[in-house]
Amino acid sequence: MVSDRVLLETESLSKSFGGVHAVQEVSFSVRQGQIKGIIGPNGAGKTTLFNLITGVYRPDRGSIRFDGERCAGLAPHQMAERGIARTFQNVELFERMSVLENVMVGRHPRTRAGFISAAFRLGGARGEERLIREKALEILGFVGIVDKAEWVSSALPFGLQRVLEIARALATEPRLLLLDEPASGLNAVETRDLGRLLGRIRDRGITVLLVEHDMSLTMEICDEILVMDYGRRLAEGTPREIQRHPQVIAAYLGEELVA
């Protein structure tokens, strides 16, 4: 299923804050249809890398190409329009809105009604509103929480909040989905379900890039892994290659995983 087509490619991407080089000269690529993992110790620059790809930060140097188009320096909403969606390490829901409404917001980049047509409820806006609702319900069905559509999102148990965040990201119809530690805070059952959900997302033709600390999950579901350390690219390869990589073992994985 993984094609040879490169979907996302960064070249010498760098970003520092004050004197801290959060991301240094990172070049890597993600191919269409992959599930790719990024691992590395805390402070290795994983989240910063995500923030660079999604336009939260502007890179100091280097380039980002998404589907062949240069997009370093674009704003986050422009990245969403181009097909990159994300979740956050510390779940960022619209917590006073219902589960359904959270996903409906995700339809924003694929819909058009503006202030004027909304204000006077012109025909187009009303039809669109119905479609937004239908699509959002369909996505909630896909991730399996449609029965909780009316719940206020902050009332969901934490594991489902992560699922909702993924649903909201899916609503933007991404081609690339970035997940920032999706399994953190989840129990074993929830983590297993998450792994299955990610597989089904890939089956929909969506490429997945995830930062994750849960090694067994990462090794199990990822086609390829990028290892980062001190803001740099340390290694890149298949889970098997990574597990055998001497530098990775030294820097991060430790003995237990090799054994």
């Binding site: 909403h77 619209f94 409906m104 917001v105 990201a169």
Partner: peptide
């Protein structure tokens, strides 16, 4: 909805397009 989204989490609203 987008306005309320800004109120609750501006970063998430931006990431949602």
């Amino acid at each position: 909805r987008a306005l309320r989204a800004i109120h609750d989490s501006e970063v998430a609203a931006r990431a949602s397009g």
